[in-house]
Write a protein that binds this DNA or RNA. Structure first.
Lengths: 141, 141
DNA sequence: ATTGCTGCAAACTCTTTGCAAGTTC
DNA sequence: GAACTTGCAAAGAGTTTGCAGCAAT
């Protein structure tokens, strides 16, 4: 029932394959919008009506500890989750709650080179992320 | 007792000048480390032993609504606060809880020009922020 | 069979809010 | 004195945890 990718991820990380875990992971991989625990639970309930929210939190915590997903920074006080992906940036829609991924290798290289030239004193860089905040505009043609 | 800058900010924003407000604002302006509400309360208690945490939260909320301070995104689930400043970026210390400001006009211009050339479809940019995560390194001489 | 996972509910942490009493303008 | 602000305590959200029973290996 659960798809192969999901099972592979779980077993590779030494986790038992349970219906709850496969369901949570499928939802996270399927949604591209940085869901909150509640978002995830909501989707889950379509197929899995009675899953307790506490179990969802525990599964998410397990995935984080295995490096399968990450917490995402947000302006509000709610934690969101994100499958671990190639280095990517975030687009924040200021007029909605939406967060979108922005993949841009050119930007990655630009920043990498910039900080290679212009070092930050006494600081060894691990990651550079850009957050672009703005509004969606509807181009009428 | 409260300094002039602080009083000016409060009155300019149509807020009554109370000892609690001046104390909170002084602490925020004085700390450069993006304090949490608890951090703020802790400092306050040095001079203001019995201030209730609820009052601190309410004052912060008032300041936010007036645009005097902003909430800051963090990876953990605790809200931090930041006086509103020139466009600046954040340095996250991955081995501690510290967040530092990074001012870099060259970087601002680089990014601005980059996104001027390479537009994001249907998106009007309001703000570009960089988060650099890394470790403090102790250069032995 | 063993080890690990879930369901449930209680507990915790951070934050918000209602209201009476106190302050500021 | 009118309008606003504080202190207090209770309530609310979101999240974590202990433990007994259940499921996966």
């Amino acid at each position: 029932m659960a798809n192969k990718t999901v099972i592979k991820i779980l077993t590779e990380n030494g986790l038992k394959v349970t219906p709850q875990r496969t369901a949570v992971l499928e939802v996270i991989l399927g949604l591209d919008n940085h869901p909150t625990a509640e978002n995830i639970a909501e989707y889950l309930r379509l197929n899995f009506p009675h899953i307790p929210i506490g179990t969802v939190y525990r599964i998410l915590e397990t995935f984080i500890s295995k490096g399968i997903i990450k917490r995402v920074n947000t302006k509000d006080d709610i934690i969101r989750f994100d499958p671990v992906k190639e280095n990517h940036h975030h687009l924040y829609h200021s007029d909605s709650e939406r967060i979108q991924d922005l993949y841009d290798d050119e930007l990655n290289k630009l920043l990498e080179n910039y900080f290679k030239k212009k070092k930050i004193p006494d600081f060894s860089i691990e990651e550079i992320k850009v957050q672009v905040t703005g509004k969606y505009i509807n181009n009428k043609k």
